[in-house]
Design a protein around this nucleic acid. Structure first.
Lengths: 244, 244
DNA sequence: GCTATCCTGTGGTCAGACCACAGTGGTCTG
DNA sequence: CAGACCACTGTGGTCTGACCACAGGATAGC
């Protein structure tokens, strides 16, 4: 009866059930592939397909070798799989980038408003902002910190799902962000503006100004993407004749 | 040089690139597993792992047999993978249900407000509501239509990412919703209330009352989950001594 | 011309065999 | 005795070849 699902689905359901009933928890090691195959009466390749799915979804980390850190280990990277999912959906159907950005906007605006309405611990975000003031940062480092800052805000708001989704959305359009930053005509001033806007967001949050915080976030993100979009067009024109 | 990624990642990147450069588009058939394996110089099992990932992510549909509808076909089910992702993340990390609900709230509120601000085509949602008026519907059928209604709203709002995410969130807590409905003390009145609230949401949207639409959606969802939560506690008390 | 049959190609699965890798534990050397 | 060294073992990663069920198309028979 249960044979109607394919072998790898059997494995996946088994693992999902183990997670739900607590016999598997983050940090645990999965049984070896061979053991799992024998236990469930399927071939090893089917087990591997299931584990592969879990890996892409950010639920397990696999490594070779022996010892307690080897094998398939349950992690639970928030938004781990979201990244791959968004990227591929983007590639396939063209989830429009604008939709991704808009979604990010909705979530981050909520986060900001939520933070302003409560009295969260903002030590993490503040520390990140301080780190971002370092003028010796490379562009990549700056963007990484920027990413961390936004995630730290989401984390402070305390909603894991929102945090994970935001992480996924961000990484889905990471290449887009990076490309845009590289093409930025005047990175120094852009960078300075971003710093100021970040401070502004935190200030509004600290002042319990929900509307202000929401508006600040919306403006922050909107402005950045507008800039990228515009400059990308310029850049496209400038390089239109170049070979790819 | 590119050998540093695992074989199945090679396949996945290859397919992703093909999607991006347009040599693969939704509706197309992938090359056969054996052909792909030969082409990329990897084993068939590696190809299968990559395809498996794409399948779970809702990007391809596979079927056996021959003919033009067989093989792996690129579909691009919005939110196909999101469902699996959310469910498993929920299982693994214990995303609190409350977080999922709150996220849903944020997104749906945005959808409602967005719809009210524009002049969308609401024929689909209206038709669904009419279908839900059928008193002979089973509970499961009603809930399925309810799900469709909410998704139809999101679709009308035109943001595919939001739609997909909502679909994923919903399916992640589907068992929770169903269980709650089953335990509902008075399903008939609950059902009637849901119908009325749905109409209310549509009315506010139609009247271009963004705030009203937002509030209506928030109230709609919040009330339902509050009810479920309360009744679940009662149910838990009533059945506390029963064996599971 | 129509029907029944075989053929072909598809994914689905399994079994077995290697490989590279990283701890583990023993052995050898100083 | 302490240290370095090395074979052993178990892990995931991969490939190969084989078989199955399935569904459509080609073919032979009526």
């Amino acid at each position: 009866m249960a044979d109607e699902q394919r072998a790898w689905e059997t494995v996946l359901s088994h693992l999902e059930r183990s997670l739900l009933d607590g016999s598997l928890a983050p940090g645990d090691r999965l049984p070896g592939e061979r053991a799992l195959a024998a236990e469930l009466g399927v071939g090893r390749s089917s087990v591997r397909e299931a584990i592969r799915v879990l890996e892409v979804l950010g639920l397990v980390r696999t490594s070779t070798g022996s010892g307690p850190t080897s094998g398939a280990i349950i992690i639970a990277v928030p938004g781990g799989g979201m990244s791959a999912l968004m990227r591929l959906q983007l590639a396939a159907t063209g989830f429009p980038v604008a939709d991704v950005v808009e979604t990010r906007l909705v979530l981050e605006a909520h986060v900001a408003a939520h933070l302003a309405a409560s009295s969260p611990d903002l030590a993490g975000p503040v520390a990140l902002l301080d780190a971002m003031d370092d003028p010796s940062l490379t562009q990549a480092e700056f963007l990484a910190l920027d990413q961390e800052f936004h995630l730290a805000l989401a984390e402070a708001a305390g909603n894991q799902v929102v945090t994970a989704t935001m992480a996924g959305l961000r990484s889905a359009i990471e290449s887009y962000i990076t490309a845009g930053a590289l093409a930025a005509a005047d990175w120094a001033s852009t960078c300075a503006r971003l710093r100021a806007e970040h401070r502004g967001i935190l200030a509004a949050v600290g002042a319990h100004d929900a509307e202000g915080a929401r508006d600040a976030v919306v403006a922050h993100i909107t402005r950045y993407y507008d800039q990228i979009t515009i400059e990308k067009e310029h850049h496209a024109q400038a390089t239109a004749a170049e070979p790819r």
